[in-house]
């Protein structure tokens, strides 16, 4: 097996370097992605307040890293990758504070209570779909949202999640199987 360099061969075109005004570039980015990123975070964590925090942190990080944005075509994968990582960090941090021995939080046991997100979104989206989503493993939820809600290809999902094309296809397959079970529990699919 030969390992080939990847980063070094990828020329980075900086928004800043191309002369585009940094503030204007960021404003454009925010305008285009504020709502999608907020909704993505909302589906990920199921809580409007946390989703707002994640969206906020995502754009703050994006602002600081704006020079690293390769080009406009890469902006979508780039901002979703930041959001994904921010959401993961948020979820992990919160799990880290759950007391040991609390069986109600066992990962195999779904939380059947309507979540705060469901309460907020009641009447807007089907509460049961969101509840099914929240039963999935976080990485399954991520790739399913990116695929079926954000309509990304396996290649794009790989860019967001930092995975190979093949790994995304495998993960997506597992996620669909888990989602089917979750929806079945809600009586929503065959």
């Amino acid at each position: 097996m030969a390992w080939t360099p990847r980063l070094a061969e990828t020329p980075r075109v900086s928004v800043h370097e191309t002369g585009v005004d940094r503030e204007a570039a960021f404003a454009s980015l925010f305008e285009e992605y504020a709502t999608p990123i907020y909704n993505y975070a909302l589906r990920m964590v199921g809580d409007p307040d946390r989703a707002a925090d994640i969206a906020q942190d995502t754009f703050i990080k994006a602002y600081r890293k704006l020079d690293q944005l390769t080009d406009d075509a890469a902006a979508r994968s780039w901002i979703y990758r930041i959001a994904t990582n921010t959401a993961i960090d948020d979820m992990r941090r919160r799990k880290f504070t759950v007391p040991m021995g609390d069986e109600s939080r066992h990962h195999d046991r779904p939380d059947l209570r309507p979540g705060p997100e469901a309460q907020v979104l009641g009447g807007v989206v089907d509460e049961r779909i969101q509840r099914a989503l929240l039963r999935l493993r976080p990485n399954h939820r991520q790739c399913l949202l990116l695929s079926d809600v954000e309509d990304m290809s396996a290649l794009q999902i790989g860019e967001v999640m930092g995975m190979s094309y093949g790994a995304v296809r495998t993960l997506l397959c597992r996620a669909r199987a888990e989602m089917r079970d979750a929806l079945l529990a809600e009586g929503m699919t065959r």
């Binding site: 709502t35 999608p36 907020y38 909704n39 909302l42 589906r43 907020v120 979104l121 807007v124 989206v125 089907d126 779909i129 969101q130 989503l133 399913l144 949202l145 079926d148 809600v149 309509d151 989602m179 929806l183 929503m188 699919t189």
Partner: peptide, 8 residues
């Protein structure tokens, strides 16, 4: 179902 989720 997922693609039909409405954004808020």
């Amino acid at each position: 179902l997922l693609s039909g989720i409405r954004h808020v």
